[in-house]
């Protein structure tokens, strides 16, 4: 079996996919926790705000999804999904796929956490000035821009790696 830096192509793809899923998932879990804690505090005062709050709390969840998508996509592209583990991947393209997963793995991890912090602050706006909810929801979406950009780059790199 041909190897690159000690790993076979398939293993490089697995490593990349796993990192993307780990980065996005961990970041989102942390981000949502920040937002949910504040939202729970607001709800303790006024449970009727649940509708607005759930949107805010869910916002940092997208990075986990982006990580998931990147992982799935890298498996699909190299034919590794659904019992296709025997598929052959050239070691160098596997390594490229691994690199392709890195933007999502890192950017989604960090941006989800910071988006969570922003969402938590936004939950405060919902508590004090419910009429400004519409504007406030835009603020966490600002942070997400960079997660979106990293996803797009990862997708294009993956396509190129194949």
């Amino acid at each position: 079996m041909e190897v690159f830096l000690g790993l076979q192509g398939v293993h490089w793809v697995f490593l990349g996919a796993a990192l993307a899923a780990i980065g996005g998932g961990m970041g989102s879990a942390m981000g949502i926790t920040y937002a949910a804690q504040i939202a729970a505090g607001v709800m303790a005062e006024d449970p009727d705000k649940f509708g607005n709050l759930v949107v805010i709390v869910a916002l940092p969840g997208t990075q986990g999804i982006y990580g998931f998508i990147t992982a799935i996509l890298s498996l699909i592209l190299f034919g590794l999904l659904g019992g296709g583990a025997g598929a052959k991947v050239a070691a160098i393209s596997g390594f490229k796929a691994f690199l392709a997963c890195l933007p999502v793995a890192f950017v989604c991890f960090a941006s989800a956490i910071y988006q969570g912090i922003t969402s938590a602050a936004t939950a405060g706006v919902v508590a004090k000035k419910p009429e400004a909810t519409g504007k406030a929801i835009v603020l966490p979406a600002m942070v997400e821009t960079y997660a979106v950009l990293s996803l797009i780059i990862s997708i294009f790199l993956l396509l190129a790696a194949k």
Binding site: F68, I69, I72, L73, E144, T145, V148, L149, I152
Partner: peptide
């Protein structure tokens, strides 16, 4: 302008998650 690329990411997200759900219950 680049900010609008999120539309692509969101569209692909829906489809790809749906795709992997299908795979799970296949």
């Amino acid at each position: 302008t680049i900010s609008y690329s999120r539309l692509m990411a969101l569209g692909l997200a829906t489809v790809l998650i749906g795709f992997s759900f299908n795979l799970m219950i296949q």
